[in-house]
Nucleic acid binder design. Structure first.
Lengths: 170, 170
DNA sequence: CCTCCTGAGTTTGACGATCGAACTGACCAT
DNA sequence: ATGGTCAGTTCGATCGTCAAACTCAGGAGG
């Protein structure tokens, strides 16, 4: 909830991955979010940081604002200027960015260009090496430990009969 | 390492997020990986599951194989047929998919269409609700707890002077 | 007052990517 | 022979993306 616009139509076999990609899966979108998350808030800084063409950047910024991921905040009246900031939904995309960063560090970069450092209270500063842990049980939650199940809502979206009982109509 | 092809050119301000997106950031790529990860291995199943046009699917499958994320494995000689399977690099993308799934469940779906279930040894089955935890210190590793630092490799890619000492030239 | 500069876009025209639908070609079952 | 499945290819039309040029405001310098 809280997120609205729908750039491209929802692919068959609907799932939340597809839904997320509709909002942030277009070219430049995630790089724009990275720039804003890392402290660039003005149009020109984001343009420089991502390398996106200015007209594409305008389009992406607008669609991300429409999607509820970014918000526009004025920082000057005289020449009317505003910067872009993450909403709560935008901040919740940080795990996606970190997953991509860790994957790129491991599989594509010869040497990571950016290091993430972690300094929680009571611990010395050290590089981040994170894994996906289930809040409920504290165990790693990835791969074969995880199974999938279609909900009633999912069955409807997939065009299947709504309940799991076999239906008697031919 | 292990990953090779480069579909679209590297944006300025290189980081591993951009590098990852070059390999798996094109339209359909992540949905294709979802389909394969969730058990569709044949062309037609992937086409049905993602909704991608067949020519696009051919292109994406080829680029993902070239990227080292998928591999083609023959399952029939007589009519020469092969299916697509995740490589180790491909399996390492599961956290990206799960991060997108969780974000979509929280921010775009009214009701999640697919539920992830977790059943580790010694725990009852329950829905997955995962977060990034640092392997080194066991603390959550996201947002303000994490800081960034440009490595020497990163400075070179960003076109900055290679060492962090101030240079004395002019 | 006139000119240059910056910041945030918008417009333009060329070009490449993407679309759905139709087609191919190999194999199998009847 | 006919129909069906599978893994693509080919097609013409549309859509997205690109770099560069342009707009429109408000300073700053002269």
């Amino acid at each position: 909830m809280g997120v609205t616009a729908v750039p491209f139509p929802l692919p068959r076999g609907a799932c939340s991955i597809a839904a997320s990609l509709e909002l942030v899966g277009e070219r430049w979108s995630l790089l724009v979010i990275r720039e804003v998350a890392w402290g660039s808030h003005r149009f020109s800084d984001i343009a420089r940081g991502t390398g996106a063409p200015r007209d594409r950047l305008t389009a992406r910024l607008n669609s991300l604002v429409a999607a509820g991921v970014l918000e526009k905040r004025a920082y000057s009246d005289a020449p009317p200027r505003s910067g872009y900031h993450l909403t709560a939904a935008g901040r919740d995309l940080l795990p996606v960015l970190q997953a991509l960063l860790q994957w790129g560090d491991k599989w594509v970069a010869d040497e990571p260009p950016v290091l993430l450092k972690h300094a929680p209270a009571g611990h010395a500063e050290h590089p981040v090496d994170a894994e996906w842990i289930c809040r409920t049980c504290g165990e790693p939650a990835i791969g074969s430990r995880v199974t999938r199940e279609l909900t009633p809502a999912g069955r409807v979206l997939s065009g299947l009969p709504a309940d799991e009982e076999h239906d008697h109509e031919h």
